[in-house]
Amino acid sequence: MTTETLVNAQPTVAPSRAILPTGFGRLLLVEARKLVNTRAGRWLLVIAVLASIGAAALSVAYFPERTVSAVFFFSFLPLGLLVPVVAILTATAEWSQRTGLTTFALEPRRGRVVAAKLVVSLLAGVAIMLVSGVFTYAAAGIGALAGQSWDGWALDLGVLAGPALNLMLLMLQASAFGLILLNTPSAVVLYFVLPQVWTTVVGFVPWLASRAAWLDLNAATEPMFTSLPDMTGQHWLQLACATALWVLVPLAAGVWRFLRAEVK
């Protein structure tokens, strides 16, 4: 081989493999795995399910109204209290579990990450309600085998839709507090304490008490537990106003904080 041939030879470079972006479905699977990937998340879900079973069993044993809808309503109460904490754990995972560097290195577009967290939180709420429905029918079936007479076996969609929508709002509110603080204990305390303190203040201040349905999410969601189709236009306006104040504004602030927070 001559010197001229060596000089004119072009180096060969092996083509690099294309790096494909992380799909949103993969992000959903990752965030869903985080729900049960820690002892706190697993035990919280287990306690919520056990509390739902216990509430359903007690309502079958002692509540005089023999309808599946009534049993479901009682089994839902522990879920509305405990399950939103799962949304807080999901929102604060990168900071409480020190996984932020890994998460944002694999998916630097934080907007997609926070969207996956919100979707998974809502899907977790839907899943836990379906599980509660299964336990409701199981408890009612056991009661029927024990000799109880039941007035109806069909779930009233109007009764079901109200708790379902309320749980979705609570999940988003809990996510908002988690995204704002990015600290699990502080977010849990804020989620449980702040709305109750506000409800107490509204009850003691006459000017606020007369506008409670517009400013307090607890008061605005109360008509949903009677029958969602029976809500009037004013009820929906009050719900929209209270939701904007207690869910949308905190959620917007939380997303802004999540997108700009420094990972240490």
Rank of each mutant, 00 (worst) to 15 (best):
M1C: 11
T3K: 02
T5H: 14
L6V: 15
L6Q: 14
N8V: 12
V13F: 15
A14D: 05
A18Q: 10
I19W: 07
P21V: 08
P21Y: 12
P21F: 15
R26D: 12
L27E: 11
L28V: 06
A32H: 11
T38W: 11
A40E: 07
R42D: 02
R42M: 13
W43E: 07
L44C: 03
L45Y: 09
V49C: 10
A61D: 06
P64T: 00
T67P: 01
V68C: 02
F72W: 13
P78T: 06
L79E: 01
L81H: 00
P84V: 07
V85Y: 01
A87G: 12
T90V: 15
A93V: 14
S96A: 13
S96I: 03
S96V: 08
Q97K: 05
Q97F: 11
T99K: 13
T99D: 10
T99V: 13
T103L: 13
T103Q: 05
A105N: 08
L106W: 12
E107C: 11
E107D: 05
E107A: 14
G111K: 07
A115C: 09
A116G: 12
V119Q: 14
S121N: 08
L122Y: 02
L123W: 03
G125H: 02
G125V: 05
G125K: 00
L130G: 15
S132Y: 04
S132C: 13
V134P: 04
F135T: 15
T136S: 08
Y137H: 06
Y137M: 12
A144C: 01
Q148L: 13
Q148F: 10
Q148P: 01
S149M: 08
S149R: 14
S149W: 06
S149Q: 15
W150K: 03
D151T: 04
G152L: 03
G152P: 07
G158Q: 09
V159S: 09
A161P: 01
P163I: 06
L165S: 10
N166K: 10
L167A: 11
M168C: 04
L170A: 09
A174L: 14
F177G: 00
G178H: 02
G178Q: 11
L179C: 04
N183F: 04
N183K: 11
T184Y: 06
S186C: 10
V188P: 11
V188C: 12
Y191T: 01
V193Q: 04
L194A: 12
G203A: 06
P206M: 07
L215Y: 05
L215V: 14
L215R: 02
L217P: 02
A219E: 03
A220L: 04
A220M: 06
E222P: 00
P223R: 08
T226P: 01
P229Q: 06
M231Y: 09
G233D: 09
Q234A: 14
Q234P: 01
Q234V: 13
Q234I: 14
H235R: 08
A240P: 04
A240H: 06
A242G: 05
W246E: 05
V247D: 07
L248P: 04
V249W: 02
P250D: 09
W256V: 07
W256C: 05
R257D: 03
A261S: 11
K264E: 12
